[in-house]
Amino acid sequence: MKCTRCGDRATVELRRHNAAFCVADFLAFFRRQVSTAIGKYRMFGREERVLVAVSGGKDSLALWDVLIEEGYETSGLYLDLGIFEYSVESQAKCQAFAAARGVPLIVSVVADAVGGPVPIIQKVTRRPPCSGCGLSKRYLMNRAALEHGFPVVATGHNLDDARSRASRPRCRPLTRSWFGA
């Protein structure tokens, strides 16, 4: 299979777009998709500072990378959920990412803000881990944005995440939030 743009060997196949790309052209395509979506849906402007909620995973760090490359003034927000070694490793990845690109990273500790880490929240609330965790994260994202003067919070989700969210009751965020890639 050949790259739709340059004709070299493709490594990524996107059936939804009836296209295939080599690595370089896939990255260009991905960046263009994000940029186009921000403009098309009037998500935020060049003059607005963007707080990017990052988990240390590929989705949120890819979004942050694209926004930096596009010239937006960004800061990362890492929420330490207190999930043992997982949280330690995730925070280290976010810190390394921020340091490599020379951008600021805000770290907010869930246990300090709501009285306990996610494993304790799960026990106390007797709700599924994602439920208590999601509530805490939404609150802390909005709070950090207000405290640090960010009019925009960006979160990196893929379509599976968006579909999952759409099936749940919605609550209105305090700041404008947008799905990323």
């Binding site: 995973g57 590929k58 989705d59 989700h157 893929n158 599976d160």
Partner: peptide, 13 residues
């Protein structure tokens, strides 16, 4: 050949 089929997942899924 040896290939790996790695599931695409997100959000800690």
């Amino acid at each position: 050949d040896t290939i790996e089929l790695r599931p695409v997942m997100s959000g800690g899924g």
